[in-house]
Design a binder for these strands. Sequence first.
DNA 1: AGCACGCCGACT
DNA 2: GTCGGCGTGCTC
Length: 830
Amino acid sequence: MTEDIFSVETTYFADVILPVPIPRMFTYRVPRHFVADIKIGARVIVQFGRNRVVTAVVGKIHTKPPEKYQAKYILELLDTDPLITEAQLWLFEWIAEYYMCCIGEVMNVAVPSGLKVSSQSRMQLNPDFDHPELLEEKEIEFIEILKVHNSLTYDDAIKFIGEKNINPLIKSLISKHAIIMYEEVKEKYKPKVAKKIRLKRGYEGSEEVLNLIDSLTKSPKQQTIILEYLRYVPINELAEKNNLGIDKSALKQGEISDSALSTLIEKGILEQFEVIVSRFGDDTPEEPLKITLTDAQQAASDDIIQNFAEKDIVLLHGITGSGKTEIYIDLIQKVLDGGSQVLYLLPEIALTTQIVVRLKRVFGDKMGVYHSKFSDNERVEVWRGIVDGRYQFVVGVRSAIFLPMDNLGLVIIDEEHETSYKQFDPAPRYHARDVGIMLGLKQGAKILLGSATPSIESYYQAKTGRYGLVTLNQRFGEAQLPDIQLVDLKAERKAKNMKNDFSSILFNQIHQNLQNKEQTIIFQNRRGYSPYLNCQECSWVSECQQCAVSLTFHLQSKELRCHYCGHKEEVPKVCPVCGSGKIRTIGFGTEKLEDDLKIMFPTARTQRMDLDTTRTKNAYQNIISEFEQGGTDILVGTQMISKGLDFDQVSLVGIFDADRMIHFPDFRASERAFQMLTQVSGRAGRRAKKGLVMIQTNNTQQSLLQKVVTNDYIGYYNDEILEREGYMYPPFARIISITIKHEEEEKAEKAAHWLANKLLEKLGKARVLGPEKALIERIRNKFLFDILIKLEKDKLNIKAAKSFLREKIDELHQTKEHKDVDVVVDVDAV
DNA sequence: AGCACGCCGACT
DNA sequence: GTCGGCGTGCTC
């Protein structure tokens, strides 16, 4: 906003992005005193609706007054430098359009809530009020309270009055001009401060200090404090170092009493002051790590760089344990040296582990970490660190793509096949891999995708030459790929060899492994003890009241839990239908395997790692550290254990329920099964020792399993790509999944049919599948119907198709019968 | 999404 | 007669 600031007559308007799911911007008037400073990307505070005050981001500045309504004024301008860069705004808009959501929803996930503003309505007396005779008794009472407290929030007022509904009272007082409401606006971000202690001026000379100590002989406690202080700040360095002071907490380590310390402060000898510190500490990294690549790694690295000369995107297909991280580090180093920024994306779980420590040792404080378990304040610090140029390199999870980097030279997306890169629940339902690619391309960066089991989509792009392809077929160092064996459950059952759910072959191997003092991993991708309970007399099954799924039995918490809506209930002692006590568990989850193992191997140290044991911030890390240090013999876990963890001493991996993964009714089931089996197998035998993997299955002839055994990714890919082509699934088509929800099944079904028919008219029936009942037909008391749209990549104008879809959904919501159904659109659903 | 307005049931 | 239930519609 520079060109027109002299034309005082011009009125400016700003179209702002509000954090609400409404697919448009809102126009506000720019007050004259903000005209000179307001910029696109700056945060503003505006009133939205009658009583809401929200933080918005300026998307556009113009002079065209809205025709149909009176624009409200912007209340406050929060940034003189834009918080959101133009590059980010562009990306937000791209996401909103591509994933068919509102830009406000994108803004909501992108901006850490620490950068949003909290506002609270406060009320106070109107100093000009001079008609007390207008007030009623209740009102006078409240005015008296307000006189004592100066100002109150709404909640305060409720407490003092002792009633829930104070609205009429407040409204009446406002209309009588007895009180006024105002908004207190404050930033949520609070810098972290450290309390520090130093000698007050006049005492920091060596002579003065010695005199001071002498003078304190009668107050030995105080003397000790001064002496303690001098341990940290030696007397001969007082002149330079006293100013910095020392942490109050450090001083209080010794036998220091609080009262003696405060006496010294009161006497004006010591003083306490506060400094703003980083939440990430200034942990001086342990000795810096220098990476040397093996020949194979070096070759791959060279290959990647060569590919980058022609292609923006390269897929690195490196088998588990091939040491992809070292290659990344080497590349990151090079890009940073060239003065560009680097973004390194990892799936959530892989980030909590050793990798951050390792990266920190290489990159020190140039590196920012962005994790979802971080608090808001920590996120804001990473954000600010990037803006201030402190962080040239960020390693982070999915949402790190929203950080304000504007000079990217390299984007790395590790474990690119991971479906957790796709946000599912609240919109925007974006895929961080695809957005990361977009983000990188826009900034002229190179993009490196890495995986041992690439997604079919990415591998296809590489095979057809759109991405470069680099393959790394050799494990790092001495390590070899494990032997993978299929255990024939049918035969084991026939021979009556099963011990609970363990085949004798696996059982014996675990036993052997324990004797050898080697570690075992047991993989079962299902948590809880058993997926349902069943009455032997009347065939009752534990079911969720709100969802069409069974309730999982959790032994540890002694509960039945719904994994979809979170509903919990007590475990019934007798069958709730027939009163029989013969209730049994059916099927098994991690809890049961853990339980069985504890019974079968009572002396083994067994640990479980799944969502239930890793709820708290450090639980995950603790389990892993314990395992790494050899404190655990057998680790039982869900897919959590398969994500990029390096365990050196694991010589046996046992895999349960592989068949269920393979036969899941979804076109991606086999892809996911292959990836999961290969990744979990990859945890075995990572150093020198050759590991063993045992997969229990009812069908040892299964072709997918055969490919897992021979580690034949390409063979698997060749099979799968034919299927995909035959049925027009990705990568040959884009899919958009539409879910219609309503409490009444019939309403949901009818609306779904209405919409599907409308879509059919234009798209044809090859492109519109369904509607059909969702796999889980009811969740949280809403019935779900799915429509799947397949849009061929080459022949179709995807943008036009999407806007057509948008139109039809709007139309649906305008018809009387269907307007109250929920419609969820998921572009590129995984 | 929130939030107010508005029109119907069960209570002082 | 009022409180308060949640359906409906709007927000610059």
